[in-house]
């Protein structure tokens, strides 16, 4: 007796398995489209400039964008829940300022680095708590967080502070050789580690799955008995932690702390996440997609640098254009799905 075996399968579902596989592919479509775009841009670059087609150009994309990668990872968590974090750029700057000023004051990096991470995570947690328990829109709370962090930068110093600490300079200059004469920086290893950890958390822990459930339908997630409140606070904490790590990476990269650093970087991070295929309404997206999003932003810059005749502002215009295209695609996509 199997009462349900007669249930008519939905249309097109001639073979459940084949259909599933196809749909499985469709789930990754936005991210794959971004990857395709990246490869196409790389191919076009290689066609136009022979020197473009080198492993090092590719690796440089990672080296020059370690901090943005880490930021995009944190932002992915937040956006997956349907929230937004405007404070990340300012927290990067604050982390750099705290770092530079304490190092200048003679602190040991082994003290400074944990402290910076603690401040970033603490700020994020604080914003998450306000968002959850006072029910204020994430936009406004993280805007206040942005003002606060940026303001605190100025409280620390109005001028740029150079970083001369030997550990930091060695991190800045170190080259980790790969096959041939290819190399990466230690920052890349850290960024890759962050991405790997984030991937593991999002796809292999209950917390990660709750993040997705929250973005899919917060009310359902609550009724399913998931820890909605804690998760909501935690994603902002994760974003704060990532911002702090990004701040450290940016310090390694620039060897200074400057209050005006990372202006507008929150927009780059959001753009990378959206271009990487994460829906701004939450629930759908992949952290690896965000990494591809960062690479697309990076290659746009590289392209413009290689071209020589194109000016730097094309970067912004192209990013805005890509953002538009992906938002419109999302709109189309989400209309069909739900």
């Amino acid at each position: 007796m199997s009462p349900l075996s007669t249930l008519t399968p939905p249309l097109k579902k001639s073979s459940a398995i084949g259909y599933g596989r196809l749909r499985g592919g469709a789930r990754y479509a936005p991210t794959l489209a971004t990857l395709g775009l990246f490869l196409a841009m790389f191919a076009v670059g290689a066609g136009m400039y022979p020197s473009f087609l080198s492993g090092q150009v590719l690796l440089n994309l990672f080296i020059d964008n370690t901090f943005l990668t880490v930021l995009a990872v944190g932002m992915t968590f937040v956006i997956l829940t349907g929230g937004i974090d405007l404070s990340v750029g300012a927290v990067v700057a604050l982390s750099m300022m705290v770092c530079a000023s304490l190092l200048q004051a003679g602190w040991n990096p082994s003290m400074v680095i944990p402290l910076v991470i603690l401040i970033g995570g603490g700020l994020g947690t604080l914003m998450g708590l306000v968002i959850q328990y006072f029910d204020i829109q994430p936009f406004i709370v993280t805007l206040a967080g942005m003002f606060l962090a940026r303001g605190l930068c100025y409280v620390i110093s109005l001028d740029s502070i150079p970083v001369t600490d030997p550990f930091f300079t060695s991190m800045a200059q170190a080259r980790i050789p790969l096959a041939g004469d290819l190399f990466i920086s230690p920052g890349v290893l850290i960024a890759v580690a962050v991405v790997a950890v984030a991937f593991f958390i999002l796809h292999h822990t209950r917390f990660g799955r709750t993040v997705y459930a929250l973005g899919g339908n917060e009310h359902s997630a609550m009724l399913m008995g998931l820890n909605v409140k804690g998760t909501k606070v935690a994603v902002y904490a994760v974003s704060g932690l990532c911002s702090a790590v990004a701040g450290l990476l940016f310090s390694f990269y620039s060897l200074s702390g400057y209050s005006l650093a990372a202006q507008g970087m929150e927009l780059d991070a959001i753009a990378a996440v959206v271009i990487g295929g994460t829906l701004l309404t939450g629930g759908t997206g992949y952290v690896l997609g965000s990494v591809v999003g960062v690479l697309v932003l990076g290659i746009v810059q590289t392209f413009i640098a290689y071209d020589g005749t194109l000016s730097s502002w094309w970067t912004k215009i192209v990013i805005g254009g890509l953002l538009l295209v992906f938002i419109l695609l999302q709109r189309l996509f989400s209309r069909k799905t739900y």
Binding site: H204, Y212, A213, N217, H219, A221, M224, L226, G283
Partner: peptide
Amino acid sequence: VYQEVNLCPNLSVEENILLGREPRRRGSI
């Protein structure tokens, strides 16, 4: 089970069945 199916449309069928109670091995789902 509510009228307006309170599950997550963006997740797979198996996840919706097991969300929050996924079998784990050494902390990993």
